[in-house]
Amino acid sequence: MKFFLPALLITVAMAAISLFVGVSEVSLLAIVSGQADEKMLMVLAASRLPRTLALILAGAGMAVAGTIMQMLSRNRFVEPSTAGTVESASLGMLAVLLLAPGLPVMLKMLVASAFALAGTGLFLAILRKVPLRSPVLVPLIGLMLGGVINACTTFFAYRYDLMQAMGAWTSGDFSTVLRGRYEVLWVACALTVAAYIAADRFTVAGMGEDFSTNLGLNYGRVVALGLVIVSMVTASVVVTAGILPFIGLIVPNLVSMIMGDRLRHTLPWIALTGAALVLVCDIVGRVVNAPYEIPVGSVLGIVGSIFFLNMLLRRRFRAA
């Protein structure tokens, strides 16, 4: 725990950098010395601050969601984008756009959550049908399920000329986050806190159904709670910024390698690392090709797939 404070400070510094990087100039000096003009303050309040907050909430939420999924499926390779959750949430978004485009964003999020819940439930149901659970078979099925759901989404998007709209929410882009358009992420924040309160239950559930029952835990109820948290966090992130792939894979595995899986102890670290990782990737995406932006989703796609490959290849060497 003694390293938590420095880590927190680093993340805060990252958030501060995130506030002051961008096309229109916002300088810390000017703000502190009271020389900031109105435009600068407006950019800060309406665009930069919401964006930075959104990055932190989304990163922390997705990392915690990934952890919960790994505990519930007892598999290190599972996270919302390798279990059909993200793709189902996108399908839900498309359904809203087609059938009830006027819904307020909170309701859109709830519909997307319902789809995500159904998709993840389907994934877990398929897993129960696989008696020999080869650990790498699990994410493989999840990825393919995601592909199938995605094909459905693309089909309807083509049919109704919504490809462009779909591209916007699948890219994982925070450049369009403004005040008034990210607030649904506070739901993700609340759920992340809820996950922390229930941390011990998720750890026990991660020990398996038999252990949970032996310790007097209602396993089914914990799974249900976990699924709701994961679906709603994923949906609120997809609704505001789009898909953030692999955070739920990278962060929980890194933290677990170093300090294990007692979630009461590790969840704050997971949330913090998730936020920091997304902040860094977003800053990189903004700086590399300025004035153009690279969506944080693209950066994460690369970082995440390299991390994933590394996990798989290390497994190969360990088996050999």
Binding site: F77, S134, V136, L140, L143, L309, R316
Partner: peptide, 9 residues
Amino acid sequence: HLLILIGVV
């Protein structure tokens, strides 16, 4: 399965 997953990733 590991081989396939490596390929997919």
